[in-house]
């Protein structure tokens, strides 16, 4: 019984981390039809900014509790600077082209940003582990879990909830849904599609940076941390159906639970368990669990 509880808790914690990192990817795809390969780099930029700003904050002798605000501030700064810069500077010039061109452009951007990160921060790892232990731990089923993980779960539920609410209940959200459904028609009805694109990409970049910033206290922030993440986030988004928020939540939960089961019961298959789950879902539903019917355009 204790082991089943551990499997569920570990699965939910991992899912919440995955959901935060995958949300921006699915948002950008849903609205802009861009599979943003640079998502991992924005995640890495968030982690680096958080680790270096947080390190300075603590080195200056400020209150450790403030480091949570620093994490958020770092992520917002990265998102609000890099998001508009990439959208206005690169993506804007390629709208209307085939999806693959944009995939290649964002892949190129990913490679460039990986080197930019090395130019700024070097190759040595950065550590900013204080926020991880600051909240203390909780005993669940005989195992100790840092409360930071519970906070991560809270953040992912709140972020997902806020996004779902603002899409379904607010005027701007409904406009966004209309653009996701039919961009040309929305533009014809007078919606400022370009502005929506700018806001969406900035939001997606900020979500990626928040994912990186929140992960930074638990890892060594070193070159390449965004690579594994973008692969996992992609698996989550594909399982759920590209562009679907509910799908991303369910995809994250499936991946988290499958991985947790594998680690606890059959560790040798952990390596490919996630991808087996992904393959099974795609056999049953080739466009993911939450893919809607595509209207035929005339």
């Amino acid at each position: 019984m204790a082991e089943v509880l551990a499997v569920i808790i570990d699965g939910v914690i991992y899912s919440s981390w995955l959901f935060i990192t995958a949300l921006g990817l699915t948002l950008v795809y849903g609205v802009m039809k861009i599979l943003n390969m640079a998502h991992g780099s924005l995640y890495a930029l968030g982690a680096y900014a958080a680790a270096s700003l947080g390190g300075r904050w603590l080195a200056a002798g400020h209150a450790p509790w403030g480091s949570y605000a620093v994490l958020l501030l770092a992520a917002l700064t990265v998102g609000l600077v890099a998001g508009p810069a990439i959208e206005r500077g690169i993506l804007r010039l390629m709208y209307g082209r085939e999806e693959i061109v944009l995939v290649l452009a964002t892949y190129a951007l990913f490679l460039i940003l990986e080197d930019v990160i090395k130019l700024i921060w070097g190759v040595d790892p950065y550590f900013f582990s204080e926020p991880y232990g600051l909240l203390g731990s909780v005993e669940l089923g005989g195992l100790s879990y840092p409360l930071y993980n519970v906070a991560l779960l809270f953040v992912s539920v709140v972020t997902g909830g806020l996004l779902a609410w603002s899409l379904g209940r607010t005027r701007r959200g409904k406009m966004l849904l209309a653009i996701i459904h039919d961009r040309e028609m929305s533009a014809a009805l007078g919606m400022n599609v370009r502005r929506v694109y700018l806001i969406t990409f900035t939001l997606g970049a900020t979500l990626a940076a928040i994912g990186g910033a929140l992960t930074s206290p638990t890892v060594a922030v070193a070159p390449g941390i965004g690579v594994e993440v973008v692969v996992l986030a992609f698996a989550v988004v594909v399982i759920g159906g590209l562009g679907s928020f509910a799908g991303a939540a369910l995809g994250a939960l499936i991946v988290g639970m499958v991985r947790s089961c594998a680690v606890h019961y059959l560790p040798q298959v952990e390596l490919f368990s996630i991808y087996v789950a992904m393959a099974l879902v795609l056999i049953a539903r080739p466009k993911g669990l939450f893919s809607g019917l595509e209207p035929r355009r005339i």
Binding site: I9, D10, V229, R259, V263, H264
Partner: peptide
């Protein structure tokens, strides 16, 4: 990068 389940 994430080892929560392994540590459990």
């Amino acid at each position: 990068g994430q080892y929560g389940a392994e540590i459990s």
